[in-house]
Design a protein around this nucleic acid. Sequence first.
DNA 1: TAAATAATAATAAACATTTAGTATTCAAGT
DNA 2: ACTTGAATACTAAATGTTTATTATTATTTA
Lengths: 178, 178
Amino acid sequence: MTRVMVLGLLSQYGPMSGYEIQQKMQSAQTDKWAYVQPASIYHALKKLDKEQFVILDTLEQTGNRSKAIYSITEKGKMEFERLLIKSFEKSSVIFPTALYTALTFMENANTKEILKALDTQKQIIEKICEDMKIGQEEKSQIMEIPQNVMMIFNNIYAQCEMQLKFIADMKKELKLNI
Amino acid sequence: MTRVMVLGLLSQYGPMSGYEIQQKMQSAQTDKWAYVQPASIYHALKKLDKEQFVILDTLEQTGNRSKAIYSITEKGKMEFERLLIKSFEKSSVIFPTALYTALTFMENANTKEILKALDTQKQIIEKICEDMKIGQEEKSQIMEIPQNVMMIFNNIYAQCEMQLKFIADMKKELKLNI
DNA sequence: TAAATAATAATAAACATTTAGTATTCAAGT
DNA sequence: ACTTGAATACTAAATGTTTATTATTATTTA
C-alpha cells in the first residue's frame, strides 16, 4: 500500500522528497488511517528507484545536508494505474486501507474501470461471506460453535454488509458523474 | 499477530508441529480471517524458540523426513498472556485481527483484565474518532474537503461506531459470566 | 547571543511476511 | 507392482515494515 501511496502522491503533486511525502500525507489526512512509517517511505522510494518507477530528480544541498527529490517515471505512472485498479478490487473487509488509498487517488483512474473493479470486489466479499457461512454450517454439524467464535463471525458479517453498502454507494456516486 | 496465534494454539492444544498448527487454524476457522501463511508459522516458531517462549519437544522421524514438535514454555505462557491483553487493548478499527485473535483465546485471560483492556480500547477508538473530527474541521476551514476524502472519513466513522457497539456487547456478555 | 528546542532528512538493523518453491510420504486406482 | 495425485513438512530468498537512532538546520526563549 505504501507503494501506491508514494506513487500516487508523486503523480499528483509532482517531484518530492521522502520528507515532503510525509507532510503531504499529513495535510491530506491520509496519515489518519494509513499509518505509513517514515522509514517505509524511504524504503519504498529506493525500491521504486531500482525498478525505474521513480527517478532521482534533484539532490538539493542545504549546507551539510542533502535532500533527495524523486519524480515518477512514465513506467511508474503505468504501474501506479495498475495498482490503483487492483486496490479497488481487493476486499476492504478486515483490510480496508487498500480501498481508502484507491479512493484517495480515484481521479487518476477511468470511471468505467473503477466500476468494474468495484464489482469484482463486491463478488470477492460475497464469496468470502458465503465460504464463511458454509464453513460455519459444516462445523456446527460436528460440534457446537463456541460463543466467542460466533462473535467473531458475526462481526465479520456485519463488516461485510457495511462494506457492500459502501461499495454500492460509491457506485451510485460514480454513475452520476459519467 | 502470528505470535499470539501460535502461542495460543500451543497453549490450548499442547505440543504441535508447524503443520499441525496450520490444521488447527483451519479446523478452528481462524484461517478465515487471520490469513497466516505457512511460512509465517515456521518463522514464528523459530523466533519463539530463540527467545525461549517455546522449546523443541520432539523430532519425529518418518523415514527420511523429520517433524519438529514444539511446546510452549512457562516463559512463553506469560508472554502469551501479556500479548493477549494487549490484543484486547488495540483498536479493532481498520485492523480487527488482533481483537479476533484475543477473542479466540479469551478463556486464557482473567475476565476483569479483559474488561479493563476493552475499556482501554474503547477510549483509544474514541480518541481516534475525535482526532479525525478535529483534523477534518481544521481542514474544512482552509479548503473544501473533496468528496472522496469525505467518503473515507465516513466509512471510518461507521467502523468506529460498529466496533464500539461490538465492544459494548462483549462487555455485557463478560459481565454476565462473572 | 547562547542554549534549548523543534523541525528536517534520512539510515541501519531488527523484525515480520510473502512468494514460490522442494522433497518426502501416503493412498488410491490400474 | 506401479503410477499418479494428494497430503505432509518445511525452507530460501525476496520483500516489506518497524524501531530506534543520528545528524543537521532552523527557531525560540532566557
